[in-house]
Structure formats: structure tokens, C-alpha cells
Design a protein around this nucleic acid. Structure first.
Length: 288
DNA sequence: AATACTGTTCGCGA
DNA sequence: CTCGCGAACAGTAT
């Protein structure tokens, strides 16, 4: 479920709450969700958190990394007692508590102070893997520059778009080119840039590419400020169980049949290599 | 009741 | 190499 903004918010939360804590116990409730030997990370202190695109790294004292991918329905929920010790989430102005029902715990980490981090994952697509440094580099070598990194330059962006005739939305969501964009932010960034999702990537002009590059960064940062997107069925929650607020600012994503905020034409939905694309047929023409 | 849909990515075969 | 499509899985909506 989560894209870059949601994973980044989780990273910030965990950095505020879990830094320097020691892993005391790990319960694996679904074998498929945890790859590696949990004994390797027992009694290890957490020294930092990092992120590449949608992947979250928990870096340990012994140089091993716990790499987490939440895929469609993964959640990380942090429970601590007493509650008063919890540092609030950075969740924007709309955050409110969501009752934790229909959870699907797959892996639970217990820490020295009795707090615990629960990995929920309804559909079991997500995973947690243990890596050494060289293994991590190898595992991430085919992932493109993170949207928020300085390597995500305008020039690299345009050159990449020129390199393929697949649809622009497919390219935006392909993590080997740029890391972090998923279906929500691809839809809304294309709308803001007045680009049809199914136009051939190499047909994007330099000027349009510049606008799209700017809008991608804008919308990703905007979502982080708004606390990320808690869309259908509360599949994204902050680790303290509160909701995000960016869903109230969706432009076209899941807005089928609603009027375009720009011209009031009704939003349409089509498929782009198997995924739903939402767009305004008036603002986002096929022939730009 | 059966089918389609869902915030993701990987592997297969063309 | 590139591409599109189904699979991995569980739940809800039509």
C-alpha cells in the first residue's frame, strides 16, 4: 500500500521512538514474511533508519540491516507501555485514531523496554529480510534514484523518459528508473502536469518533462506534510495507529465520475498495464 | 454467486 | 534486451 511518503513517515516515527533500543525477541507468525535467521539480530541495538524508495532499512549495531517492504497491505504498528512515553507521529492536521481491527500480525519485534513493533500484512505480499552490507547493496542495485535524493535530476528524468516507448505512467511507477512513485502519486502528478497516463513516454517534450519532474517532487513533499495517504480500508496508518490526511487532497486518484477540480469535466478511469488510471479527459489529452 | 477490484513487484514466455 | 500478463494473497464491492 504505501508509497514513498508513507514509508518516509514510518521512518521518521520509528526514528523518534525506536532509536538505540535493543531487539530482545522476535515472533514470526508467518514464515514467508521473514527471510533470514532471527538469531542474527537478537540483542542488537538499532543505530539508524534509512529508506530507498518504498523500502525501509533498520540498521543494527552489528552492521546487519533489517530491510522491510510493505507491498500492498503491510503496516508497522508500534505499541509501548505506558502510553504517555510515546512520541507523537508527524501526521499533519488530520490524524485521528483508527481502531486496530482486522489486523493480520505476521512478525512481532519485542524491545528491551517492553515495547513492540508489529508487522501486519493482510495479503502477505510484504516481507522482512536480513542483509549484510554487501548483500544489501546487491539487493538494491537495480533500484533507481530515490525521488527525494539529489540524484533524481531533471536531466536524468528527461533522458529516462526518452529511453522508452512504454506509457508514461508505467515508466513513473517502474522502480528501476526512479524509486518511490506508486499508483496514487503517479495519477495525481500526471494530472497536475496535464499529461495523459497512456501517452508514450518518449513523446513527452522537454518542457512537459520539466513540469512533471517538478510536480512529482511537489506532490511527494505535500503528502508527507499532510501525513501521507490513508485511503480505502485504512491500509496505511502511522505506527501509533492514527490516520494520515493526504487522502483529502487527492486530485484524480479514485475520483471516477467526479468533476475535475480544474474544468469540471467528469474524471475517467482506464487501465495502464493492468493498473487503474484516473484522469481528466479534457485537461489530459492523448495528443498533448 | 461469481467476478472484479485493491496503495506492489516478480517471473515467465513471446 | 523489452514488454505484457498472471501470480503471490485476502478482503470488499458490484
Amino acid at each position: 500500500m504505501p508509497e514513498l511518503p508513507e514509508v518516509e513517515l514510518i521512518r521518521l516515527f520509528l526514528n523518534n521512538n525506536l532509536l538505540n533500543k535493543t531487539i530482545k525477541k522476535i515472533e514470526v507468525l508467518n514464515q514467508k514474511s521473514f527471510i533470514g535467521d532471527s538469531k542474527d539480530i537478537l540483542n542488537q541495538k538499532i543505530i539508524s533508519f534509512s529508506r530507498l524508495g518504498k523500502q525501509l532499512s533498520i540498521n543494527l549495531e552489528n552492521n546487519l540491516t533489517i530491510l522491510i517492504h510493505l507491498k500492498m497491505t503491510g503496516q508497522l504498528i508500534y505499541e509501548i507501555t505506558p502510553l504517555s512515553k510515546r512520541v507523537p507521529a508527524e501526521r499533519g492536521i488530520f490524524g485521528h485514531s483508527i481502531p486496530l481491527k482486522n489486523q493480520h500480525p505476521r512478525v512481532i519485534f519485542f524491545f528491551s523496554d517492553k515495547s513492540k513493533l508489529i508487522f501486519n500484512d493482510q495479503r502477505k505480499f510484504g516481507w522482512i529480510k536480513i542483509f549484510s552490507n554487501p548483500e544489501l547493496v546487491e539487493a538494491q542495485k537495480n533500484i533507481g534514484p530515490d525521488i527525494l535524493s539529489k540524484n533524481f535530476t531533471n536531466k536524468y528524468f528527461y533522458n529516462t523518459l526518452q529511453s522508452s516507448s512504454r506509457t508514461i505512467k508505467t515508466i513513473l511507477m517502474d522502480q528501476k528508473y526512479f524509486a518511490g512513485i506508486g499508483n496514487i502519486y503517479a495519477n495525481d502528478a500526471l494530472f497536475l502536469s496535464k499529461i495523459h497516463p497512456n501517452i508514450s513516454s518518449k513523446k513527452i517534450t522537454k518542457e512537459k518533462s520539466y513540469i512533471l519532474h517538478k510536480n512529482i517532487k511537489k506532490i511527494i513533499k505535500e503528502s508527507i506534510k499532510n501525513g501521507g495517504s490513508t485511503a480505502r480500508d485504512n491500509k496505511y496508518l502511522h505506527p501509533d495507529g492514527t490516520s494520515g490526511g493526504h487522502q483529502y487532497f487527492f486530485r484524480v486518484y479514485q475520483k471516477l465520475g467526479e468533476p475535475c477540480s480544474n474544468c469540471s469535466t467528469l474524471i475517467k478511469s482506464i487501465k495502464t498495464s493492468g493498473r487503474s488510471s484516473f484522469y481528466c479527459p479534457n485537461c489530459q489529452k492523448l495528443s498533448h
